[in-house]
Amino acid sequence: MKITMGAVVMGGTSVLYPTGAWRDQRPVIDHEACKSCDTCRDVCPDSSVFVQEDVYYIDYDFCKGCGLCAYECPVDAIAMILEEK
């Protein structure tokens, strides 16, 4: 790809760089226990929690596994599980 003048790039292109590869722990949501309070989505530094029809999911393409969602979850509905190859 040709370089751009002055290294100007399009905004939002970071989504081409999935940071999920950085993860050594995986958050897993217990959908039974989840009260859909939105905390996990709110606290994610990597915008990697999404909600669909009131059900919360992790975007594993980008989740780095920091564990904030699990720690902050008021009903302990998220477990951090070691990634295995």
Partner: peptide
């Protein structure tokens, strides 16, 4: 059409710039 100015670059492109 938001653009980003002043990117950080590495050895793969700096010389070309």
């Amino acid at each position: 059409d938001p653009k980003t100015w002043g990117s950080y670059s590495e050895e793969n492109v700096l010389m070309e710039f």
